[in-house]
Design a protein around this nucleic acid. Structure first.
Lengths: 272, 272
DNA sequence: CAAATAGTGTCTCTAAGACAATATCAC
DNA sequence: GTGATATTGTCTTAGAGACACTATTTG
């Protein structure tokens, strides 16, 4: 063998001897939706939402799952994730990041299927999710994620009167990242509840340092909008003057202003 | 189909119709090695090292690569990574974290092989790397990683008079993480230079917030040792009183002291 | 004018960097 | 004693939270 040329080696090489897994990409796509409320001059409520699809076939028939699909030969896993989320949501996401690789041998009753989990951000447009190629039902679910410091967390997803409540245990790795294991899936298909929790964890740390929040907004935005995005994702509350001070390092001002709201116009900013 | 039970569906399900990739785990295992220098009372130099293996077969014959191997049915990707690094380094790593999934269709001339990249930490013991099951040559390489802020980075790996220098371009993702693409592999096999750079990036952020540095040290350690680990990984320099102040939140003191060095004994601490 | 957001300035507290000074051991 | 690390304390500066206050618009 050592005397063979590389070409000769490759010509005789075969990987057919080993069993191989199917590989999928599952995408937790987030969007921030605003919901008008009460007084004409009050700002709308903002909610973080994640896109779920109702499974039309087995396994987990009629359960809600993340959009995703099989990796095809000739594409990268990111291309696969983009393709799947685009097909399901009808829009190209503004950001995409690998959050985990789920490989438990029994995670899918269909057989040996491993899945790369992604977090992604959909810029708020008027896009309504479309039923994908499988004619499945795709809907945005309001996200609520409470992780007390006791090592357990509760993920609640709501759409209309559908309420999915998953219970997870937190496991802090030596590298500072937190992984989640499902204690109670709450009707969410496969291990997708853990994927959503991990994606939220990544989303929050990305929102903290101003690296992800711009992707939720159009090109030009007010500082108040920006603040609402950060607050909504991180589930915190900041005083406007203090937020303004921090945000100043990450934005450039334009010479445009909003108008039509029941209060002083706000200057529009862009990402620096 | 909708009327079938789930059991009937699964009994008739077959995934043989789709082509599937081979999946590997590649592990960037780091260790900090101390190198006595000069005066008897001076602290030894510390260097960050990564374990590489000289490939005995094609492709990339005689090039240096990360230890790794194929995912087997019935194991998780983490178990696979642990198994491979244990076989190669002869010791179980103290930490393991997924840093990326490399899926470019042409990344491996043998065919469709995707790889999960891990960062891992080997506690400094007297362990010498063993030639693995392939009778390959395994060696620790000193790591030097300079990323100027211009978007390019240089990764230099040295062992004896072997010097591998890879050039990479940095790509900051919307989620705040940095990905690396290889401009010049410097003789490092496959896309492993990018894997090492990504692992270093993760290692540095883990060292910054005291989440990973303890894994490089034995159970009890002095604050000076801890400081050296952080400084070595992050390539920075901190004044000892200031480091002591920050570290205080993360350690518990014992009632033991070092002795035998040419200076005042130091109290031993443990991870809190 | 009232209600709401937009925007500025300032006080305080904390964390981090710089650095002076003392303590203690092996040789 | 000398040379090294160990350890404590303090000064200064940067940043974040709290908050008082002014500005501007629509109904």
């Amino acid at each position: 063998m050592d005397n063979n040329s590389e070409q000769a080696f490759l010509a005789g090489y075969s990987m057919d001897d080993y069993e191989r897994p199917s590989v999928t990409a599952d995408v937790a796509a987030f969007m921030i939706r605003s919901e008008a409320c009460g007084s004409y001059r009050k700002e709308p409520q903002s909610r973080l939402s994640v896109l779920l699809i109702r499974r039309g076939g087995h396994p987990y028939k009629d359960c809600w799952a993340l959009p995703g699909g099989f990796l095809q030969k000739g594409e990268t896993i990111e291309e696969c994730a983009l393709r799947e989320i685009t097909e399901e949501a009808g829009v190209a996401p503004a950001a995409l990041m690998l959050t985990g690789l789920y490989t438990a041998p029994d995670r899918d009753p269909r057989g040996w299927i491993i899945s790369a989990a992604f977090a992604s951000v959909i810029t708020d447009t008027e896009t309504e999710p479309v039923g994908g190629d499988d004619a499945n039902d795709a809907q945005w679910f309001d996200v609520s994620f409470d992780n007390d410091d006791t090592g357990s967390a509760v993920l609640t997803l709501m759409h209309g009167n559908i309420r999915l409540e998953a219970h997870l245990t937190e496991h802090r790795s030596s590298f500072g990242r937190t992984e989640y294991r499902i204690a109670e899936s709450g009707g969410i298909a496969f291990d997708h509840a853990a994927m959503i929790a991990s994606a939220l964890s990544v989303l929050r740390s990305g929102a903290e340092n101003f690296s992800i929040i711009f992707d939720f907004l159009p090109e030009k935005f007010t500082l108040n909008q920006l603040q609402r995005v950060q607050e909504t994702i991180m589930n915190i509350s900041v005083l406007p003057p203090n937020f303004r001070r921090k945000a100043a390092d990450y934005v450039t001002e334009t010479d445009e202003y909003t108008s039509g709201a029941g209060h002083r116009p706000a200057k529009l900013f862009m990402k620096k």
